[in-house]
C-alpha cells in the first residue's frame, strides 16, 4: 500500500503532469497558430502570445524542476504533506493550463481569434490544481512526518558588566525560498490571467518569509520579516522569562513561514521559520513561546538572558529547559 502510494506520488502523477504539459501541445502542434495565445485579459480576450514550442518548453521545464525538487526532498528523507501538496498543485496547474491554452487555440488561424478564457475557466483550473494538491497531501500520509521538534537547548548567558549595555542584530535567510519566489513569478508570467494574480500573491508571501531580522536590546526583542525587516513586532523583555537556543526543523514546526507549532511539544508555540538550523526560543510565561530562526542564535539568546538577569530576573536553572 505504502509502495503504491510512493509510486503514485513520486512517479505516476509527476510523469502524468509532464506528459500532459508537453505532450498535448505537441500532439496538436499542427492545429495551433504560431504564435499562439498564451495570456488572456481579465475580461477573457486573448492579449498575449508566444511560440507554442517556447511556451511548452517553459511550462515543461517548470514541471521538471518541481519534480526534481520533490525527489530531492524525498531523498533527504524529509517529505512532508505540505511539500507534496505544493508540488502537485504547481505541476497540475501547469498541465491544466496547457490543456486550456491548447483548447482555446485549436484550429484558429491567428492568436487574437483564440477562444475566450474568462474567470470561470481560470477558477476551474485553479480548483483542479487545488484538488491535486489535496491528493498530494493525502498520499504523503502521516508516516512521513518526522519525529517531532528537537529538544529545547540550553539557555546561554552573555557576560555583561555592571555599567555595560549591549544591542545585538542577527538575521537568517533562505536562498531556497528566494529561488522559489522567482520561480513562482516565472510561472505567473507564463500562465498569465487570473491565475497569475493568485500565483503572484503566493510569490509575495514567500518573499516575506525568505529572510528575517532580529534585534535584541533593553527595549526587548524585535522580529521583522524580509530583508527589509517589516512588518515587525517587538516583544518587551518583561514578557520573556528566558531565551533558549534550539535547532529548528521546519517540518516539525509545521513548515516554513509564520507557524503555530502543531502538537503538544512546544505548547502551541508561534514560530517564524525561514530555514533549517539554529534559532532562538523565547519562553514566555502566560503566552505561547516564540521561536525564530536566526544565525548566531547563541549570542542573541545570551544577550536576552544577560539583560533579563541584569533586570533582576532570576533565571531558572536550565539546561534541558523542558516544560
Amino acid at each position: 500500500m505504502t509502495r503504491v502510494r510512493s509510486v503514485l506520488r513520486l512517479v505516476v502523477i509527476p510523469a502524468g503532469s509532464l506528459a500532459v504539459t508537453v505532450g498535448v501541445p505537441l500532439w496538436f502542434l499542427g492545429r495551433l497558430p504560431d504564435p499562439m495565445a498564451r495570456h488572456w485579459s481579465a475580461s477573457g480576450t486573448p492579449d498575449g502570445a508566444s511560440s507554442p514550442i517556447l511556451l511548452t518548453a517553459l511550462a515543461g521545464g517548470v514541471v521538471l524542476v518541481v519534480w526534481v525538487a520533490l525527489l530531492l526532498v524525498e531523498r533527504r528523507g524529509t517529505p512532508s504533506s505540505a511539500s507534496s501538496a505544493v508540488a502537485f498543485f504547481l505541476m497540475s496547474l501547469l498541465a491544466v493550463l496547457q490543456v486550456v491554452a491548447v483548447w482555446a487555440n485549436l484550429d484558429v488561424a491567428e492568436w487574437p481569434e483564440a477562444r475566450a478564457v474568462g474567470a470561470p475557466v481560470a477558477l476551474g483550473a485553479a480548483l483542479v490544481a487545488v484538488a491535486f494538491g489535496g491528493l498530494g497531501w493525502v498520499l504523503t500520509g502521516s508516516g512521513a512526518v518526522p519525529s517531532g521538534p528537537a529538544a529545547a537547548g540550553p539557555a546561554p548567558r552573555m557576560e555583561l558588566g555592571a555599567g555595560e549595555d549591549a544591542v545585538w542584530f542577527g538575521m537568517a535567510e533562505s536562498r531556497g525560498l528566494a529561488v522559489l519566489a522567482v520561480l513562482l513569478v516565472g510561472v505567473a508570467v507564463v500562465v498569465g490571467g487570473v491565475v497569475a494574480a493568485l500565483v503572484l500573491v503566493v510569490a509575495g508571501l514567500v518573499v516575506f518569509f525568505a529572510a528575517v531580522r532580529v534585534g535584541v536590546s533593553e527595549h526587548g526583542v524585535e522580529i521583522g520579516l524580509g530583508w527589509w525587516g517589516w512588518p515587525r513586532r517587538r516583544i518587551p523583555l518583561d514578557e520573556i522569562m528566558r531565551a533558549e537556543v534550539m535547532d529548528v526543523e521546519p517540518l516539525a514546526m509545521g513548515g516554513w513561514g509564520y507557524r503555530v507549532v502543531p502538537g503538544s511539544m512546544l505548547r502551541g508555540a508561534r514560530a517564524v521559520v525561514v530555514r533549517r538550523g539554529p534559532g532562538i526560543r523565547l519562553v514566555r510565561g502566560m503566552r505561547p513561546d516564540l521561536v525564530v530562526t536566526v544565525d548566531g542564535a547563541a549570542q542573541g539568546a545570551g544577550l536576552v538572558n544577560a539583560l533579563l538577569e541584569r533586570d533582576g530576573r532570576v533565571l531558572p536553572p536550565t539546561p534541558g529547559g523542558g516544560d
Binding site: 555599567g163 549595555d165 549591549a166 542584530f169 544565525d295
Partner: peptide, 14 residues
C-alpha cells in the same frame, strides 16, 4: 560580527 550578525557593547557611564 559573525556572518551578518553583530553585537554592539557600550558603557553607560561613558
Amino acid at each position: 560580527s559573525i556572518n551578518g550578525t553583530m553585537l554592539l557593547r557600550f558603557d553607560r557611564s561613558d
